[in-house]
């Protein structure tokens, strides 16, 4: 059993995001980067599946600049076995679009032949939520998007670090978070599973594991070596700041609030 997990280097969601004056992109100077939080959940799930007595190799793949090796290294420090970096130097509006990323990953997967590919449901920079689905179609595989579980993140199962995805008889059984409830799918392996927020709480890397991770191998590939044309199908023409909401007023009591909702906002 081999599990491949994709990890994207993104701007830290806790940093202040500002649009450049020329509206070409956001200001990236002084903004911290980290692994996409959904991808960390995917790494955690892969490690739990491995630790649940299935002899597995967990391979981390990232497409991006040389700096993305940092995020691969973080996943290795969580416990993954080795990394692959598909080096691509375009930044800002010249970043990889999800379709190019999916076609690069397709080639890596055809070489690596994993049984399961775990990915974040979306990256918190472009918020596209399409790469996993594109990849599944390119590979002709089944998919289960928005993987979750029925138990809460404060449940005993979660504290015991049990995997939320069940691997049985050559299939993955997955609870999915969908509109109006939870759906259970059974996907034949190999398959793509994209993960949602409530699948698990990712672990922190321990110091010994951080030291060990420094010795784990990271192979480097390139779009040229993989034979992939990275021309974007979706191009960002400009970005702007969202419309600002005028700071509102404080009301002293409930009576005033209701009166204002009735006569000023006219919503009740």
């Amino acid at each position: 059993m081999k599990i491949l997990v994709t990890v994207k280097r993104v701007e830290d969601y806790e940093s202040k995001i500002k649009v450049k004056p020329d509206k070409s992109w956001i200001v990236t100077e002084g903004v911290n980067c980290r692994a996409n939080p959904f991808d960390e959940i995917a790494v955690e799930e892969a490690l739990r599946l491995r630790d649940a007595a299935m002899p597995s190799e967990v391979v981390i793949v990232s497409c991006g600049s040389a700096a993305a090796a940092t995020e691969i290294r973080s996943a290795l420090a969580m416990g993954a076995d080795r990394g692959v970096l598909v080096k691509f130097d375009g930044a800002g509006p010249q970043s990889l679009d999800p379709d190019a990323a999916a076609r690069l990953l397709q080639k890596v997967i055809e070489k690596e032949k994993p049984d399961l590919v775990l990915m974040g449901k979306q990256a918190v920079d472009d918020d596209s939520n399409v790469t996993g689905q594109l990849l599944a179609e390119y590979l002709g595989w089944g998919q289960a998007t928005f993987a979750s579980k029925r138990e809460s993140l404060e449940s005993e199962e979660e504290k015991a670090k049990k995997p939320g995805i069940a691997i049985e008889g050559g299939t993955a059984k997955v609870w999915r978070e969908v509109d109006g409830g939870l759906e259970r799918l059974e996907v034949a392996l190999p398959a793509i599973v994209t993960v949602d927020l409530r699948l698990n709480v990712p672990r922190y890397a321990s110091l010994p594991n951080i030291m060990k991770a420094k010795k784990k191998p990271i192979d480097e590939l390139s779009p040229v070596a993989l034979g992939v044309d990275t021309t974007a199908k979706v191009r960002v023409l400009s970005v702007e700041a969202p419309p600002a909401r005028a700071g509102g007023q404080k009301v002293p009591d409930v009576a005033t609030l209701v009166q204002k909702l009735k006569t000023e906002a006219k919503v009740i």
Partner: peptide, 23 residues
């Protein structure tokens, strides 16, 4: 862009060689 739209549309796009603008 419901959970169904998000799940299905990229697969349609991949089959049509199309780019997808989501949400």
């Amino acid at each position: 862009a419901t959970s169904i739209g998000k799940d299905v549309m990229p697969r349609v796009a991949a089959r049509l060689g199309a780019g997808v603008a989501s949400d």
